[in-house]
Each structure stands twice: as structure tokens, then as C-alpha cells.
């Protein structure tokens, strides 16, 4: 299963090679053009020359750690790549570097902590990656400074049509775009799997600059906070509630046109949908919509509980419904159902 394969693979921001590899294997045969750029963004294009040029983007990278130093004991010092809550890190299995050397994230055992320490969150400065070696020399034989460290989780089915795993943000987006790209739409489609989203939306701007599409759609994994102890108004999205349409986030305000496009298509096809209720955090949609003279950009996401942690949950109905919605939307665009301004419009 492609989604399982994509989520189990490791691809911390800046080190997306394994994800690129899987996607190339999966999609090269469907594409007219396959290429990468200097940042590592991966592009697949087909339908070249057709009228509307649409870019679809999902980011390949996931949050993780990077090795910054060695202790004499052979324990590794690491810093966070992307935003991870320090509190989810302790006692998790990881893999380090190109050779996927296994390790665990350890901290001083609770017995050895002073009562005052026990109440505090354990931050990254008090966490170490332990490869099981006895000295710095041994550690340096296995891993290098600057090696990326990825949290390691097997993806498994659970509950009613759910998956537990890591990196659904945004491998679920990668998965959906891969599925879409295998089909044909009457459009000039470039699917871009972007890099370095988690460290400040650093890949997508360059990608949109090169592709220079008429319109873009970004597919994300977004936080579902419909858990006990939170008010419904504060639920960013609800698991199982269908694809989440973003109205606004920290980087982006959705144009009414694209909101209408998603909503009308969902209603026409009878697909459940929800609006993302939170307006915080940024996405590639922000960068893409700000590239060149402005690119009309839509953003839809799959809800994901416990995002940015090694054990997060997606609902497969949401995934399928997002796929249906995206197909519907691309067909609407292909039929000219949304006015994509080529240059500028007269004021109405």
C-alpha cells in the first residue's frame, strides 16, 4: 500500500531522498516529464500544452531531528528540525543517517530525577539519542555530524477505518497527488512534491517560480483537535468529518473563488467536507500564492490527530473523500468552471 510505504519512509526536512525515490518509482511511467531542482523539489508533468496549467503540491518532508554533537559516552546530541513539541520526543525509537542506524531517545530515568525535575517537561537539551555504543569513537563510525534523525513508526490499521502512523503530514498529501497523477485530466498538470515545508515553507516558492502555473492546489495534512477536553469551537478539524477546506491560515487567505470551487464541488458530488477552524500556522499555499504576480491557490487538507508526533491518526474515509473532491475539482477546472485570470481582470 502506497500510503503505508510513504509514511513509513524517512524524510526529515532537507533529507527527502527516500520519499523522492518512492514517488519516482511510482509515477515516472505516468509522466511526460520528471525532474528535480537545486532544492530537491520533485516535479512530474503531463498534458503539456493543454490550456489551464495547474500545479498540485504536497510536501515530502516531515519533522525530525539532526545530529549536532557527540558526547564522550557515544550518546548523540540532536536539535529539532521543524516544530515538534519537546514533550513527545522522550522514549521514542529513531533511525539515524543514510544507513538508518537504529537508536532510541533517552533521558535520565525518573528515579534519578529530583522531585522538582519530575514535574518539568523534558526539553531537547536533556534528551540524547542512544545507539547502544560505548564511546564517541564507536558512534562516529556509525553516524556523522549533520545526519538526519527520523522518528520511526510502522503504519498500522486501527479502529474503524483509521491508520496509526507518523508523517501523515504530509505524506497523505503525497499519496493523494500520486493517485491523482495516475489519472488523466484535460489539463496541463504539474505535480510538485516539495521539500522543507516544515522549516519555513522553503521549497514551494522556488517550485512555483519554476512551474509558473495558472492555478495551484495544495494538499496538506492538518491538525484534528477533536479530542476530549477541548471545546467544539476550538477543534481545528474533526477526524472523519471529510476534507478540510482552509479559509485562512497564518500565511494565506483563501480567495472566495477557490473556497466556492471546493464547496460547490463537494456538494455536487455529495462529499462531506468541513472548514478548518484554526487560522494559525502556515502552509505552502502561502508561498505559492505569493509567487510571481500572484498565483490563484486553493488549499484542502486531510484531518490528522496528534500531528507532528510519531503516533498520529488519519481516517481513511477522509483520505478517500479528499481524493474524490480533488478529482471533482480538477474536472471542474478542466471544464472551465472557474475563471483563472491569465493576467488581469477589469473591475466588475
Amino acid at each position: 500500500m502506497l500510503l503505508k510505504r510513504l509514511t513509513e519512509a524517512y524524510g526529515v526536512s532537507g533529507d527527502e531522498g527516500d520519499i523522492r525515490h518512492i514517488l519516482k518509482e511510482e509515477l515516472s511511467s505516468s509522466a511526460e516529464e520528471v525532474y528535480t531542482d537545486a532544492l530537491g523539489n520533485l516535479f512530474f508533468r503531463k498534458g503539456k500544452g493543454r490550456s489551464a496549467k495547474v500545479m498540485l503540491a504536497a510536501h515530502m518532508d516531515e519533522v525530525g531531528l539532526i545530529v549536532v554533537g557527540f558526547e564522550k559516552s557515544g550518546l548523540l546530541r540532536a536539535h529539532k528540525v521543524g516544530s515538534i513539541d519537546d514533550r513527545v520526543l522522550v522514549s521514542k525509537p529513531v533511525v539515524v543517517g543514510k544507513n538508518k542506524v537504529p537508536g532510541v531517545i533517552g533521558a535520565k530515568a525518573v528515579h534519578l530525577q529530583k522531585p522538582s525535575e519530575r514535574k518539568k517537561a523534558i526539553d531537547i537539551d536533556n534528551l540524547y539519542i542512544d545507539l547502544g555504543v560505548r564511546s564517541q569513537d564507536e558512534a562516529e563510525k556509525l553516524v556523522n555530524l549533520g545526519d538526519y534523525v527520523a522518528l520511526s513508526t510502522k503504519t498500522r490499521e486501527a479502529g474503524e477505518n483509521c491508520l496509526i502512523g507518523k508523517a501523515f503530514d504530509d505524506r497523505v498529501g503525497c499519496f493523494l497527488l500520486a493517485e491523482l497523477f495516475k489519472e488523466d485530466f484535460a489539463l496541463d498538470v504539474t505535480v510538485v512534491f516539495t521539500v522543507q515545508e516544515e522549516i519555513g515553507l522553503r521549497g514551494s516558492g522556488a517550485a512555483a517560480y519554476s512551474v509558473h502555473p495558472d492555478m495551484a492546489i495544495v494538499v496538506e495534512g492538518t491538525s484534528a483537535s477533536d479530542v476530549v477536553g477541548t471545546k467544539e469551537a476550538a477543534h481545528a478539524t474533526t477526524l472523519g468529518g471529510g476534507p478540510a477546506i482552509t479559509l485562512m491560515d497564518a500565511s494565506y487567505i483563501a480567495p472566495q473563488k477557490t473556497i466556492d470551487l471546493f464547496v460547490q464541488t463537494a456538494e455536487k458530488l455529495g462529499i462531506p467536507y468541513q472548514f478548518r477552524r484554526s487560522t494559525t500556522s502556515g502552509t505552502d499555499a502561502g508561498k505559492i500564492s505569493q509567487t510571481h504576480s500572484g498565483i490563484l491557490t486553493g488549499l484542502v487538507s486531510v484531518p490528522c490527530r496528534y500531528i507532528h508526533s510519531p503516533a498520529s491518526i488519519v481516517n481513511l474515509d477522509d483520505v478517500q473523500n479528499t481524493l474524490r473532491l480533488l478529482k471533482g475539482v480538477l474536472n471542474v477546472i478542466a471544464e472551465g468552471g472557474i475563471s483563472i485570470e491569465a493576467a488581469t481582470e477589469k473591475v466588475k
Binding site: 526536512s13 531542482d37 537545486a38 532544492l39 523539489n41 531531528l65 539532526i66 549536532v68 536539535h79 529539532k80 528540525v81 521543524g82 522549516i199 519555513g200 522553503r202 521549497g203 516558492g205 522556488a206 517550485a207 517560480y209 519554476s210
Partner: peptide
């Protein structure tokens, strides 16, 4: 672990990526 606080931060994401 992320974008550095130097000119390299800006250079990398110029145009189609450097």
C-alpha cells in the same frame, strides 16, 4: 537544523532555488 541566520537563508530560495 533550519534556515540559517545568514545571507544563505535568502540565497537558497531565490527564483527557482539556488
Amino acid at each position: 537544523p533550519g534556515a540559517t541566520g545568514t545571507d544563505a537563508r535568502a540565497i537558497q530560495v531565490t527564483r527557482g532555488g539556488i
